[in-house]
Design a protein around this nucleic acid. Structure first.
Lengths: 172, 172
DNA sequence: AATAGTAAACTAATACTATTAGTTTTACAA
DNA sequence: TTGTAAAACTAATAGTATTAGTTTACTATT
């Protein structure tokens, strides 16, 4: 009954907390409402629907991913941190995928673009290279995710090798 | 009321049809039951739950993927067919991911392993290379999927370049 | 052929999911 | 102080998977 001044930011904060501590699948209207001690319909006074909440979550999750990556400047260090983020915060990583490539998305792409092996390429080739590298990273993460993180032991070695092959393919 | 001799195979066939013609998300107990003109609870006489149905779907979908790939013997032709399959039958491709790496999964891996650029590598390196290549393919597909197949025009070119980079990184 | 047993369907109910309509309450501003 | 608007609510709908318990239909045996 009290008005508790609910805001969009409080809602997305709650939603991100759930994604981070439980899972992305646990981000439901009921769970968000419970975390805020309100009833689900109240959320519709601030967001059109669950999808809009997830859209907003994606933007913030992308910013957190950017923050984690921003001081890295080689393909390997970016790749390692990228994978590390997706393992440490799977819910946040999943959330980050549900948003298009906005401002933050471009900023992340720029981190890859400014890497030694990529910086020298002509624009067109650079775009394809970045697309390929990100595909590789995301695919690596997603396949691990689907297979339940089985062979964790070789995970880092596989990543290092993959990045090595890609770098050699670019510079050679 | 008639008994209509429902079998596991008829159920998975119906489920795969739904995945193929509608979407993987449309694979629900209600939809499967409707396709078979029965009520949802009847499905539980043949499968423990929806997850087991999806498990079985995964095996069959992997077989269909293998069939589509089996006559290809270069990384590029495999990659093109792989992406083609995922675009032509997104529901089937999604289904194929929900199963671990069983017999068919290994058969698919062998197709990559027998490729000219990979066949010569020592076993350990080969494993990492295959893992990397499949990650790249899957990531490429999944990112397109999440971004809604925006830039379809450059899709093929990006793929060709990616494969080129990877091949050069291996042989160089 | 009658009957027992089993397999496979059913109905009804539970507990979730998102969402909408309509109502009440709270807070703030005139 | 009172009116208005924002923000909460309750109640309901339609969808999801699943379970319990019941009935139907077929099959095999006596």
């Amino acid at each position: 009954m009290p008005k508790m001044q609910l805001t969009q930011s409080k809602i997305t904060d709650a939603a991100l907390s759930i994604a981070e501590q439980q899972s992305y699948e646990a981000v439901t209207m009921a769970n968000i409402a419970r975390a805020l001690s309100i009833k689900p319909p109240s959320l519709y006074n601030h967001f059109k629907n669950l999808d809009e909440i997830k859209q907003e979550m994606a933007l913030i999750a992308q910013q957190k991913l950017y923050e984690a990556l921003k001081d890295k400047n080689t393909l390997l260090s970016l790749a390692k941190k990228y994978v590390d983020f997706s393992i440490s915060y799977p819910g946040l990583y999943t959330a980050s995928l549900r948003g298009g490539t906005g401002k933050t998305g471009h900023a992340i792409v720029q981190l890859f673009a400014n890497t030694p092996v990529l910086a020298g390429l002509v624009e067109k080739e650079k775009i394809h290279a970045i697309r390929g590298f990100r595909s590789m990273l995301h695919g690596f993460i997603d396949l691990q995710y689907h297979e339940g993180f089985k062979m964790n032991v070789n995970l880092e070695e596989s990543l290092v090798r993959m990045v090595g092959i890609f770098e050699r393919g670019l510079s050679g």
